[in-house]
């Protein structure tokens, strides 16, 4: 989880990475999501694709983590 927080902080400096509404509150946008997917695929060695790009999958670090778990 710490690794994911670190990635989020790198991509979107200054946001509250523990927020439960990253997408809903506009803390991350489509550019961030694409960058995030690239980083996640590199760091966690999983294969994500466009079908996974749903707001609910990126709304919180927990949601992103469970997406990573599902993709393993």
């Amino acid at each position: 989880m710490e690794k994911l927080y670190e990635i989020l902080e790198n991509i979107c400096p200054g946001i509250d990475v523990r927020s439960e509404a990253l997408v809903d509150d506009g803390l991350i946008d489509s550019f961030d999501i694409v960058a995030l997917v690239g980083e996640i695929m590199d760091e966690f060695g999983v294969e994500l694709n466009v079908d996974d790009i749903l707001p609910e999958n990126f709304n919180s670090a927990d949601a992103i983590m469970s997406l990573i778990e599902r993709s393993r």
Binding site: V34, V37, G38
Partner: peptide, 18 residues
């Protein structure tokens, strides 16, 4: 945008540029 950004050539390109 998403399909294009997450297409294999652009992902590869992204890895290369990073």
């Amino acid at each position: 945008f998403y399909p294009l950004s997450l297409s294999k050539p652009l992902i590869k390109f992204g890895k290369f540029t990073r």
